[in-house]
Amino acid sequence: MKKIAGIAFVPLLLLLACNNNGTETLTDKENYKKATETLLEKEKKTPIAFLKVNSHDKHNLFGQTVIKGSIDNNAKVCSYKDVQLQLSFFSKTGTLLEKSNETIYDVIAPGKSVDFKTKYFAPKGTDSVGIKVLAAKINQ
């Protein structure tokens, strides 16, 4: 009799386990959707936190400072466009000589990067250029 009760109990357990997984999958999907929406809102509110600029500069024969670089989008969901950069020109001693703004009119998908190149007649005595992201628009 105990054997029959044990045999009947195993299928009942399996049946309950299968039904329970179906509802957990639904809540897992809902939780994932909520987490994605929360992440999207965070990425929309603070694009500067997800964009990183790498650059280097050199001088050409015409006396211009040529700045080449890339903007990396570290966001998981959100694409950005029209990234505004601030260029700061420094002397050998680290004194700020001048600031200028530049906009990169391109779309940067999540996890991707965009290359850019710009030329400036930098102020006399410029030794280095610092670049930071000021703002970016959300690509809908």
Score class of each variant (00 low, 15 high):
Leu13Ser: 08
Leu13Ala: 10
Leu13Lys: 02
Leu13Gln: 02
Leu16Asn: 09
Leu16Trp: 06
Ala17Lys: 02
Ala17Glu: 04
Cys18Ala: 14
Asn19Trp: 08
Asn19Thr: 05
Asn20Ala: 11
Asn21Thr: 11
Gly22Trp: 12
Thr23Glu: 08
Thr25His: 09
Leu26Asn: 12
Leu26Arg: 12
Thr27Gln: 13
Thr27Leu: 11
Thr27Val: 12
Asp28Phe: 14
Asp28Arg: 07
Asn31Met: 08
Lys33Arg: 15
Lys33Ala: 15
Lys34Trp: 09
Ala35Pro: 00
Ala35Arg: 03
Ala35Lys: 05
Thr36Glu: 13
Glu37Lys: 02
Leu40Ser: 13
Lys42Met: 07
Glu43Tyr: 00
Glu43His: 01
Lys44Cys: 06
Thr46His: 06
Pro47Phe: 00
Pro47Asp: 02
Ile48Thr: 12
Ala49Ser: 13
Ala49Pro: 03
Phe50Trp: 08
Phe50Ser: 11
Lys52Gly: 01
Lys52Arg: 13
Val53Gln: 00
Asn54Glu: 10
Asn54Tyr: 07
Ser55Tyr: 03
Asp57Val: 03
Asp57Lys: 03
Asp57Cys: 07
His59Ile: 13
Asn60Lys: 03
Asn60Gln: 00
Asn60Gly: 04
Asn60Met: 04
Leu61Asp: 13
Leu61Ile: 15
Leu61Ser: 14
Leu61Cys: 06
Phe62Thr: 08
Phe62Glu: 10
Ser70Pro: 04
Ser70His: 02
Ile71Asn: 00
Ile71Gly: 01
Asp72Ile: 14
Asp72Arg: 05
Asn73Gly: 03
Asn73Met: 05
Asn73Ala: 06
Asn74Glu: 12
Asn74Phe: 11
Ala75Arg: 00
Lys76Val: 12
Val77His: 07
Val77Gln: 09
Ser79Cys: 04
Lys81Gly: 02
Lys81Met: 09
Val83Trp: 02
Gln84Arg: 10
Leu85Thr: 01
Leu85Asn: 01
Gln86Cys: 08
Gln86Tyr: 01
Leu87Thr: 07
Leu87Val: 07
Phe89Val: 06
Phe90Tyr: 15
Ser91Gln: 05
Ser91Trp: 00
Lys92Pro: 05
Lys92Cys: 04
Lys92Trp: 02
Thr93Leu: 08
Gly94Phe: 00
Gly94Asn: 01
Leu97Tyr: 04
Leu97Phe: 08
Ser100Glu: 11
Glu102Ile: 15
Glu102Arg: 10
Glu102Gly: 00
Glu102Tyr: 15
Thr103Glu: 11
Asp106Gln: 12
Ile108His: 03
Ala109Val: 07
Pro110Glu: 03
Gly111Ile: 08
Gly111Met: 08
Ser113Gly: 05
Asp115Lys: 06
Asp115Cys: 01
Phe116Lys: 00
Thr118Leu: 07
Lys119Met: 14
Lys119Ala: 15
Tyr120Gln: 09
Tyr120Leu: 12
Tyr120Met: 09
Tyr120Ser: 06
Phe121Leu: 12
